[in-house]
Amino acid sequence: MKTFTANITVTLRRAILDVQGKAVENALHSLHMPGICDVRIGKHIELSIQAVDAEAASAQLREACDKLLTNPVMEDYHFTLNETAAVEAA
């Protein structure tokens, strides 16, 4: 078994108006940063996952995202997966 760290980013689907993102964008413009646009506010989820390999970890993670962590009606997600370096016994 290997241990992986997953970083999952969840955002509202593009088709859905992100009102928080819009409010923050307006605030940035009022702070004289007109070049910043397309602000999207989402969620960041970190977790550890044990699996035989990266492929199995990805499969578990996709199941977790599809069943609980995100709602496909309103959200999209993507994730990165890194194997955690084994800590040597002292």
């Binding site: 509202l12 859905i16 108006l17 009102v19 709602n71 009606v73 309103m74």
Partner: peptide
């Protein structure tokens, strides 16, 4: 969320 009804309810437009 349970899939018994279609759609979803998200943050109010005026936050």
């Amino acid at each position: 969320e349970a899939g018994l009804l279609p759609g979803a309810l998200i943050r109010n437009q005026n936050l």
